[in-house]
Design a protein around this nucleic acid. Structure first.
Length: 449
RNA sequence: GAGGAUGUAGCUCAGUUGGUUAGAGCGCUAGUUUGUGGCACUAGAGGUCGGGGGUUCGACCCCCCUCAUUCUCCCCA
């Protein structure tokens, strides 16, 4: 006999967890649909050529690769095999990999189906993704993303809609969040003003850590990355500006920076027109890792909870370009369902009703009454009410025990008398109240209890 | 990729400086007037102590190796 186990960083979801997860998915999906997004599903695996080079060097290393079928070593690169060079060998023995996110497969889909799509194309996608990261708290190797993207328009209307979607979905989930927004062009403008456009990435990585390591830490990080002291001083001065207005004079010398400012102002002009239930905040230090973002970027943090971001996204001016379809701008955001689950669980924010499986359990005493009970449970089900029949007739201890453990609120007792009178005796598990009623009365009773 | 922690019953964990037959709680099964659950009581099943090697008269305990899980850093949802 072998010991059963699960691969590192993956999990089973039992009935209760699944119900809670579906609650999250359903809530988010309903908002997506309301905003006019259309469903899309893509395969778990993609050609590696589709995935590699889209997420930076680190991302490439986190891709799960799938071993080719058949006698793959026969066709393996003999030199790489001899040299034990895994990186080089991989391409000759693996041509497919598990998807790393939902955005790149979406871009591939758009390019392949451009003839059939009407732009701007709004799609949502709720599927698992896989990353060969070292698992830890709030980080898994298999996790779900709920993505919404619009492709084929550079209108800032969509940035505003996506903020609204975040706001509404988290309000529906009763989870207070802070939605942070920034613009890649503002970050580039900082680099321009500081005269270090060649060190743009180093700069963003460093200032992204501001709320974690403070100004002193950022200063050190910038210096360590070889950015001159004068530039560090300039950056620090710009970072201390907390609102958009204060940045106006700073970007007098940066066309890109100015443009970033204008974009954010436009987004806020839209948002001023609608009521929002969560805090939306401009955060100049927000950077985000993925290299394809070009305009607005977003991040969502749960308030008062120690957990990484539970959502993020941004504008990418030319994601489809690598697949041979340039000039198509897109913007999208993602909900990290598994982290949202962890936060809702920690904060006890799941609705109580989620634990209920069926409304009523039928229990009978012998073969004859069991048959009548089967008739009854079928009638209840036919009325669209979830119901169950305990499989073995006999003493009532077992079915009552079962009902208690499965959180079933009503138990119907079916005995000789009930069968004769064509009634059922229903006990409410919570109040202990018990009464006899006809089947019609039962249906009415159940729709209320 | 770097570093730490933990592996003992189905689950959560005790286990003395190394000493006879390895424990508890929960869960499970069966009972406690054969038409009534959560509670209580009684009885019972269930472990090659992650695996391999070593030290020792003797190892759950000490040493080495290995596997698995988990946490932190990097990075991310």
């Amino acid at each position: 006999m072998q010991k059963p186990g699960l691969p590192e960083g993956t999990r089973d979801f039992g009935p209760e967890q699944s119900r809670k997860r579906n609650y999250i998915f359903d809530t988010i999906r309903a908002v997506f649909i309301k905003f006019g997004f259309q469903p899309l599903e893509t395969p778990a695996m993609e050609n590696l050529s589709t995935l590699t080079g889209k997420y930076g060097d680190e991302g490439d290393q986190l891709l799960f690769k799938i071993l080719n079928n058949g006698d793959f070593l026969q066709k393996a690169d003999p030199d790489a095999l001899e040299a034990r060079d895994s990186a080089r060998l991989a391409s000759s023995i693996s041509k497919r990999g598990l998807r790393y996110d939902l955005t790149v497969p979406f871009a591939r889909f758009v390019v392949m189906n451009r003839h059939a799509l009407t732009f701007p194309f709004k799609r949502y996608q709720v599927q698992p993704v896989w990353r060969a990261d070292r698992p830890q708290k709030g980080r898994y190797r298999e996790f779900y993303q709920c993505d919404v993207d619009v492709i084929g328009s550079d209108s800032l209307l969509y940035e505003a809609e996506l903020v609204q979607i975040y706001d509404e979905a988290f309000a529906d989930l009763q989870l207070p969040v802070e939605i942070r927004i920034n613009n890649r062009k503002i970050l580039y403008g900082i680099a321009e003003v500081a005269g270090i456009t060649d060190r743009f990435t180093d700069m963003t990585v460093a200032i992204d850590k501001l709320d974690k390591i403070g100004f002193d830490g950022v200063r050190k990080e910038l210096s360590d990355r070889g950015i001159p002291a004068a530039a560090v001083a300039t950056i620090e001065k710009i970072l201390s500006a907390s609102d958009l207005e204060a940045l106006q004079p700073v970007f007098a010398a940066s066309e890109t920076g100015k443009q970033g400012l204008e974009e954010l102002e436009q987004v806020f002009r839209y948002l001023e027109k609608v009521p929002l239930r969560n805090e939306v905040r401009f955060d100049i230090t927000l950077a985000r890792g993925l290299s394809y973002y070009t305009g607005c970027i977003f991040e969502v943090l749960a308030k008062g909870v120690k957990m990484g971001s539970i959502g993020g996204g941004g504008r990418y001016a030319d994601l489809t370009g690598v697949f041979g379809m340039p000039g198509l701008s897109g913007v999208g955001v993602s909900f990290g369902a598994d982290r949202i689950y962890d936060v809702l669980d920690m904060e006890n924010l799941f609705p109580d009703a989620l634990t209920e499986s069926v409304r009523i359990l039928f229990a009978a005493f012998d073969e004859a009454t069991h048959l009548y009970a089967f008739e009854c449970v079928s009638a209840v089900r036919a009325a669209g009410i979830p119901a169950d029949l305990y499989p073995t007739p006999g003493k009532l201890k077992k079915p009552f025990d079962y009902a208690a453990k499965c959180n079933i609120p009503n138990v119907a007792i079916i005995g000789e008398t009930e069968m004769q009178e064509r009634t059922v005796t229903v006990k409410n598990q919570q109040s202990g109240e018990q009464k006899s009623m006809s089947l019609d009365e039962l249906l009415q009773y159940l729709s209320g209890h």
